[in-house]
Design a protein around this nucleic acid. Structure first.
Lengths: 338, 338
DNA sequence: TTTATTTACGCAAACGTTTTCGGTAGGTGC
DNA sequence: GCACCTACCGAAAACGTTTGCGTAAATAAA
């Protein structure tokens, strides 16, 4: 079976390759009559242009890369959903890379992307990343980059985030207004700005309501969930006065649930819990978990839109194009006043 | 800034492009001394070969496509995780396409893939797909395809699935052994074989235990969850004797939970529920949901492995390479015998 | 009629890489 | 001395597409 490409089409139509190419791209330099002829044969033979030849020649791949820590996480899954939607609408393809929060993997991936495989990059940096040289070096190749959620402050480009400070403040305030006086903050400590913003919101909400911040109530979680359960258990046993928990990370809220059940602390009667989460099933938990939910889909979609717009216009992406989309507080039974 | 490609490297090294290319690919036709020189400059200048030029010339893209209905679903998210892992290990890139269970989108995506953008395809077909001509036509271009989970029986290739029939049988048997006598089956009716297998397992388990199958107990759900709640409510009100529910689809189990709470049916005292689900939070639901959980990560990884192996060896994929990975039944309180 | 202008198409170069084919230099065996 | 081999390297074609430029004919303007 002969390959179906511009050459074979041209031969069958007794035209030049150039004319066939132009006809298919609807150029004004070719008559309507031949356009019709060309299109007819192309669809008849199921012609599809070779993406790599086209990309090579035009130096454009119609592909964007997405580098994220993980996909088995409802936030990132929803973000990909939004990204794919925006990409599809503009005819872009989506390459996915997972760092698993591993710095070395992130570096390797970023290095690979210098090969021109993508026209632009969406990125949520790994929590283990402390040195951003690899990202800067990629940006120096003029590859447009947009960060979302886990941004890299040191690289001057657009960032799409949620209002982490305000959300941390709101969550803490919500616990206070529900009657809590001794509020713990569970977080994963790393150098990501989002964690710091949430922590600051927590602290400011406490002081604003006359509650003195206590470092003993701030628990730095780790990667391993089993270990987190141990840490949280220790905290709750050491400080039986804790009556509220603000979890900056979904799985810390889940671990807190486990510990409370194990220790016989009733939620929300003895202790109230609120957490950042995109869990669909939050309302089905026992009890339903109050959440701060990020607009993950929108974050992904808007980030992709900014990126694609820049790629198409061949214009640099400015930090001023950054977007902050508000998270939403869903009040459920785990923080019911009582 | 001059581009860093083979040409520029060759000029600086006073070598030919051919030699530089061979040196970087570690050909035996170039001396060790020059290899060292070439590699040194290449790493110094951060050279990364142009992926599209390479793909065009070698007719190989080191990229696999993944076409799935959705990503905001723990099963598919885990599957992607496995796919990415296998791909990364073999140096492959992963393109993601979402059909949203829409036939037209699936056709458009498949048509696009004829452009040679991917070396192979992993696919889980959309539930709305009834005609497989587009897939067959893609396969006719000699593109290797491996189906996973939602397979297409009409295309002769490898399929990676789970033991749907046995799982349906086990789930039903588990309900019977927990004391249920009137067991409803909630499913999404479509022409996917997995649904049919599960339904058959349900029927066979009933008859094997002397319970007469009753078509009135089989509920065909729809896409819209609100509508499903209505349907389930009608069913439970029409048949107050129902004491067990087997949900073939996660969200139907969730909807059943909602209806039970609304109608005041206690789980598991009045009615027991088990469902296919990859929900992480199943154990945190109220009450914890018994599940049949598919090995999603392994399914994705094994499917990708089969595909990549075939791509590398340039050999056809045979239906005999199909794999069946067993699901696991997690018994939780929603089916506690009482 | 002559001179611009437009229309419709072909030629050929380019994108960066890989690979075939060959060529040169030096060494080895006879 | 000659034939032969090996080690190393370069020239150039090829992958399929896009596009600047040229050109012939047709049309419009003068």
């Amino acid at each position: 079976m002969t390959p179906v490409n511009l050459k074979s089409l041209a031969e069958q139509l007794h035209l030049s390759i150039a004319t066939v190419s132009r006809a298919l791209r609807d150029s004004h330099e070719v008559s309507e009559a031949t356009k019709v002829r060309v299109r007819a044969l192309a669809t008849a033979l199921n012609y599809e242009p070779n993406a790599y030849a086209s990309s090579l020649r035009r130096n454009v791949s119609k592909t964007i890369g997405v580098v994220i820590p993980k996909v088995a996480n409802h936030f990132f899954a929803l973000a990909i959903n939004g990204i794919e939607e925006a990409a599809r609408q503009s005819g872009y393809h989506v390459l996915i890379y997972l760092t698993h929060d591993d710095y070395a993997r992130e570096v390797a991936i970023v290095q690979h992307l210098k090969g021109g495989r993508v026209d632009g990059l969406l990125m949520s940096v790994a929590s283990g990343t402390e040195d951003f040289a690899h990202i800067k070096s990629l940006k120096d190749t003029n590859l447009p980059i947009v960060f979302f959620d886990r941004v890299c402050a040191e690289v001057a480009t657009a960032k799409v985030t949620t209002n982490d400070y305000e959300s941390g403040y709101q969550a803490t305030e919500h616990l206070i207004q529900s009657g809590c006086r001794t509020i713990a903050h569970l977080l994963i400590s790393n150098n990501l700005s989002i964690g710091q913003f949430r922590q600051q919101g927590y602290l400011d909400a406490l002081t604003a309501h006359g509650l003195p911040p206590d470092p003993d109530l701030v628990l730095n979680g780790v990667m391993d969930n089993e270990q987190n359960v141990v840490l949280i258990r220790e905290l709750l046993q050491r400080r039986p006065d804790i009556d509220g928990i603000f979890a900056s990370v979904e799985r810390l809220a889940i671990s807190a649930y486990h510990v409370c059940k194990e220790l016989g602390r009733r939620i929300p009667e003895d202790i109230k819990i609120i957490g950042f989460s995109n869990l669909e099933a939050a309302s089905l938990l026992d009890p339903p978990l109050s959440t701060i939910t990020q607009p993950a889909y929108d974050i992904g979609r808007e980030a992709a839109k900014i990126l694609i717009r820049a790629v198409e216009k061949k214009k640099d992406i400015l930090p001023s194009q950054s977007l902050v989309l508000n998270s939403e507080l869903f009040q459920r039974r785990s923080t019911a006043a009582g």
